[in-house]
Design a protein around this nucleic acid. Structure first.
Lengths: 152, 152
DNA sequence: CTTATTTCAGGGCCACTGATATTA
DNA sequence: CTAATATCAGTGGCCCTGAAATAA
């Protein structure tokens, strides 16, 4: 097998092939792109599944805490919630204790959508990790968490 | 330790905490953001270190192959190369074999910048993986590569 | 008076689609 | 004539900063 047989292979990235940051980025771009493509029937919910899942586990939280949970500035969350509200997935309800804050809740439709999307995410995970043992998948989660802890 | 002691902790993401896709995304956002912040003195080169590293290992390639290597459309690469040209890091040279194509090369300054940035990336990796054994770091790279292979 | 929450205006960056000119 | 390369115009999306309004 001569080198010339591989002329149409992808170009490798050279030195950064051994960089965690580089591989992390490439994997994430490919994963996110594929996930959104596959679920284009769900409006913009797939993009914000992380946020929706946070709201699902912590209903009634103020916007500022939600923004913090997904590593965004508070002001960046505003148009996202506008959008998810327009799609009928979440609602803002004024807090009774503090009239500055909104409490964010999933609507009935939001609950149903998140549940379906979480199943889709599990399927997508399974595809992304095909050929890996359960042990390897668990290790991947554990190692990614270590990276996140070090970066937070 | 009562639950109330943790009232100011970050909100967890609920069900998707066990999703590879979610953790991948969060880790990458934090990593990339931190890397760019730390290296803001280098202009826009840190953002495109992956591309620059590809060019370094494969000098003189046409734009279309470079775009493919970093999972972008050809048309998206055009303004990026304009920018890197303006910053004096790369140059387009007309191909002699095929007058449609440009061959992309690093300038002298580009070479130097990439070399320094690769060192910075190694340092950044080391920080991101602190507390992990060499074995774990190697495993992380290997597992990320498996994900990439499954997604390509 | 100081601080916290949300919102808004404005800006910059990113990547895509689809069309074009050029050349193979 | 068909296919490939680079480019451009136009579109839409993302997230930020800094300022404003309101309320604690």
């Amino acid at each position: 097998m001569l080198k010339e047989d591989k002329l149409d292979a992808y170009l490798d990235a050279g030195a950064v092939e051994e960089s965690i940051g580089y591989k992390l980025r490439l994997a994430q771009i490919l994963a996110f792109r594929g996930f959104e493509l596959e679920l284009s029937g769900y409006g913009r919910a797939p993009r914000y599944l992380g946020l929706l899942s946070v709201i699902r586990s912590h209903p009634g939280q103020p916007q500022s805490r939600l923004a913090e949970a997904i590593a965004l500035k508070r002001s960046s969350l505003v148009p996202i919630l506008d959008l998810l509200t327009k799609e009928g997935l979440v609602e803002r309800k004024p807090s009774e204790q503090d009239r500055r804050t909104n409490c964010i809740w999933l609507t009935r439709k939001g609950e149903q959508t998140v549940e379906k999307l979480i199943e889709e995410a599990e399927r997508y995970d399974a595809n992304m990790t095909r050929g890996m043992s359960d042990e390897e998948v668990k290790t991947t989660l554990k190692l990614l968490q270590k990276l996140i802890d070090n970066l937070s």
